[in-house]
Every structure is written in structure tokens, then in C-alpha cells.
């Protein structure tokens, strides 16, 4: 049968790709532009990147983001993996309801998650800061880790585990020696996604961060609102490159065969 694609479809798709990518490309190019105000190209410079290093708020924001990201990723990766194991390997009462419950955070608008957590923390008189941001990030990351790890578990060969048990290993030994190494790429892939989301989150964080504990997105948001100097382009470019690398790694590991 004829599989040739009509010309108009190719042209149209090219335009859609342009729409998806051109704004980012332009943003990156102008992070190297010499002029402060003009959008015309006046020459190449690293000045805006150097300027970033002088800004205390950005460096502190980056530090806060890395701390929150590392802590929330660690906890949500462990909790999410355990839930995925229970769902893939065990039958228990209330399973369907639990699965539905686990999907709700994936579709809940960020603004709802943010304000409801703010209400909880204020009600319990928990001071807002890095701890509350971390708690919030764990809460929205767990379900994503579950989805990623569960997908890997469902494609996993269980014969190795059964062989280990037949050869006399107990559940705990089998788990550490067989299951975890096989599952490792899935766990890392889920963890990288959790870190990316934590590193990028603005909406939820803005409600539970309080004053004096700003993550990088909070700082960038303030910059976007206040001034228009090309340092924003520079920090945006750095964030873009960092997330692109993380996602590429997550994708590679997600596809890799277990060790």
C-alpha cells in the first residue's frame, strides 16, 4: 500500500517542531549576547554567566535546590520502590482502591497540592522552610517513582529469584542479591525523574517555602518578574542543560537490561 506522506503534512509538522523548539533555541542564543537591552545580536560574551556567580541569591537557591532534591529523591525512591514491589508481587485486600489512590497525585493540580499542604503546616504550626519543601516534594514524587519502577518490575524475569530460593536462599538474601540488582536501572530512572521534578518545581514550593528558604526556581521566578537582564537567559540555559542530561540518563537507564 502507499505509505508516502503528503507534502502538506510534512510542512505542517516542521512548523509544529519549530514552535516547540525555536523559543528555547532563541533563549539560549541570547544568553551569549553582548548587549543588555537590545534583542539584536551585538557580539559574543560569557558576561551573563560570570554575573551569575556574583549573585548570592542564585548560589544559595542552587544549594537549597540540591539539598531538597537529594533528600526528597532518596526518600521517594525508597518508598516508591517498596510500593511498586508490593503491587507487582503481592495480592492483598484493597489493592484496586490503593492503585487508584496512587494515581490521584498524578492528576491533582499543583496549586491544590501546594495550598492544601500550606494549610496543614500552618494548622500544625510547622515552621516553613527546607524541611517542609522536602516533605512536599516527597509527596508529589512517590507516585511517579511507583509508575516507573512498576513498569520495570512487570517486564522482569522472575526465574532468577525462584532459582535462588530453590537453591536455599531466604527471602531477604534473594531480595538483596537478585531482585535489587535486576531492578536497579528502574529505581535509578525513577529517582532521576523525581530529582528533575523536585529541581524544577515552582508552584508547590512557592506555597510551602516561607521566607528565607528559596530554591532555584523561586529565585528565577523573582528574576523573571522583576528585571529583564540576560542573566535570566544564562541561568535558564544552565537549568535546561542540567535537566536535559538528567532526562537523557533516566531514559538510557530505563531501557537498559538489568545487571
Amino acid at each position: 500500500m502507499s505509505t508516502k506522506l503528503p507534502r502538506w503534512l510534512i510542512a505542517f509538522s516542521a512548523l509544529v517542531y519549530l514552535f516547540l523548539h525555536l523559543p528555547i533555541v532563541v533563549l539560549v542564543i541570547f544568553s551569549f549576547n553582548d548587549s543588555k537591552y537590545a534583542v539584536s545580536w551585538t557580539g559574543f560574551t560569557w558576561a551573563w554567566y560570570q554575573r551569575l556567580l556574583e549573585r548570592e541569591d542564585i548560589l544559595r537557591g542552587l544549594e537549597a535546590s540540591l539539598i531538597v532534591g537529594a533528600a526528597s529523591t532518596l526518600v521517594s525512591a525508597v518508598f516508591g520502590t517498596l510500593i511498586a514491589l508490593a503491587l507487582a508481587r503481592h495480592r492483598f485486600r484493597g489493592r484496586t482502591a490503593l492503585e487508584a489512590f496512587l494515581y490521584v497525585p498524578l492528576v491533582t493540580p499543583e496549586i491544590v497540592v501546594g495550598i492544601s499542604l500550606l494549610i496543614l503546616f500552618v494548622l500544625l504550626k510547622v515552621p516553613l522552610g527546607l524541611a517542609t519543601i522536602t516533605i512536599a516534594h516527597i509527596a508529589f514524587s512517590i507516585s511517579f517513582v511507583v509508575v516507573v519502577v512498576l513498569a520495570r518490575l512487570q517486564g522482569m524475569d522472575r526465574n532468577l529469584e525462584e532459582a535462588a530460593m530453590t537453591l536455599g536462599a531466604d527471602e531477604i538474601t534473594t531480595f538483596w542479591k537478585i531482585t535489587v540488582p535486576q531492578l536497579w536501572p528502574g529505581i535509578i530512572s525513577g529517582a532521576l525523574l523525581a530529582f528533575t521534578m523536585s529541581f524544577d518545581d515552582y508552584v508547590i514550593t512557592s506555597f510551602v517555602s516561607g521566607t528565607g528558604s528559596s530554591t532555584l526556581p523561586i529565585v528565577v521566578y523573582t528574576m523573571v518578574r522583576r528585571n529583564i537582564e540576560p542573566s535570566i537567559n544564562a541561568i535558564s540555559t544552565i537549568i535546561l542543560v542540567a535537566t536535559a542530561v538528567l532526562i537523557y540518563l533516566a531514559d538510557r537507564l530505563g531501557r537498559e537490561k538489568g545487571a
Binding site: 528555547i24 532563541v26 528533575t196 526556581p217 528565577v220 536535559a244
Partner: peptide, 13 residues
């Protein structure tokens, strides 16, 4: 997967 905030800024730009 790229930052939503950054992409929104790209639109402003």
C-alpha cells in the same frame, strides 16, 4: 521534560 518556568520565560522573551 524541560523546565516549565524556563519555557514560560522563553515565551516572554
Amino acid at each position: 521534560w524541560t523546565s516549565f518556568l524556563v519555557r514560560t520565560f522563553a515565551m516572554i522573551f
